[in-house]
Computed example of a mutant assay.
Amino acid sequence: MPLQRTAGERLFDIGNALFMIVLSIATLYPFLYVLFASVSDPASFVQYRGILLKPLGFTIESYKMVFKNPMISLGYLNTLFYVGVGTALNILMTSLGAYCLSRQGLLWKNHMMMLIVITMFFSGGLIPTYLLVSGIGLMDSRWALIIPGAMSAYNMIIMRTAFQAVPVSLEESARLDGAGDLTILFRIVLPLSLPVLAVMVLFYGVGHWNAWFSAMIYLRTRDLWPLQLVMREILIQNATDNMMTSVGGGDRMPVGETIKYATIIVATVPILLLYPFLQKYFVKGVMIGAVKE
């Protein structure tokens, strides 16, 4: 027999549902505003004030101008390189470090973990990092955005905890068959840790996709700029003139406004498409790496 709910419990459920609806709307509306603004008629948009619930007219001229900008295409290619190569290196380095620290009987394991945890709270800062990157010859190089952040201590601890959940008997059986550590890692441990691996790909991939500050510090050649740095130039420095060569002088300001919103959509949608494929692993992967010890 189901338990009868009290009036207070029902009232709490209603209030909780209303709160979540309001929170969802508050979270979703900024993205919808940007989307509606990007396809709105520029002249109507700059004159409009208030909440935007639908496009003001409909035009995709702003998107055409964005894709005609060679820096957008080049920024996309650079970002795909940084995301692909950077995430692959991140996963490799994090997996190797996590596997070593998850093995029983590792000499000075606790001391190494303590040193790694210390780096999460204390760091040299921007100037020593800049001097290091400059000293090893990575300035104005793609690798300046990849090598310095090859491994995250936080992510390695999560992955280490997930690796500790793999039964030791599987490793012992593999060693009896002559398997070495690399074989055990890549053919046993990683395939059994797909949820946490998917979370690491998401964390590192989104980090590389959104990164712009390191590029601004270390890159001088514009052809190496990632998409986010190109977008920063368009949004903050109002660098839209090169996308409006065919627009008359009086129409440049309204078109420039909608170009900014179109640029945001172009830079945001690809990474949003990644979430549905990794979401089913997200909670499980984080919980595996967070609660088990």
Rank of each mutant, 00 (worst) to 15 (best):
L176F: 05
Q228A: 06
Q279K: 13
K292E: 11
Y29H: 13
L35S: 06
R187W: 09
A37L: 00
M156W: 03
L18M: 14
I60N: 05
L126K: 04
V22W: 14
M231E: 12
L32Y: 12
A267T: 06
W225G: 12
L202C: 01
G149E: 06
M200T: 04
F81L: 08
L126Q: 08
G180S: 12
N90F: 05
N155V: 01
Y218E: 04
L235E: 06
N155P: 07
L192W: 10
K54N: 12
E61F: 01
M93S: 13
Q164H: 02
R5Q: 08
L138T: 05
L89R: 03
L3G: 14
N210I: 11
H111C: 13
K109V: 11
P30L: 08
T87D: 13
T183V: 11
R222N: 11
T27C: 15
I157P: 06
M231D: 08
N69Q: 09
M71H: 04
S95P: 03
D13K: 07
G207N: 13
L80C: 13
V189R: 04
W225F: 15
G180F: 08
A165C: 03
N69L: 09
M71K: 14
R187H: 14
A26Y: 00
M243R: 00
I21N: 03
L106I: 12
A144N: 09
I158H: 01
F122D: 00
I236N: 03
M253H: 02
G15D: 01
L278Q: 00
S44A: 15
N90D: 05
I147P: 05
M114F: 14
V201Y: 00
F277G: 11
Q104F: 10
Y261A: 00
V201P: 01
T119D: 09
M253D: 02
G84A: 06
F58Q: 05
F81Q: 00
R222W: 01
Y76C: 02
P55T: 08
Y99M: 11
F121M: 15
Y154S: 03
G86E: 04
P167A: 07
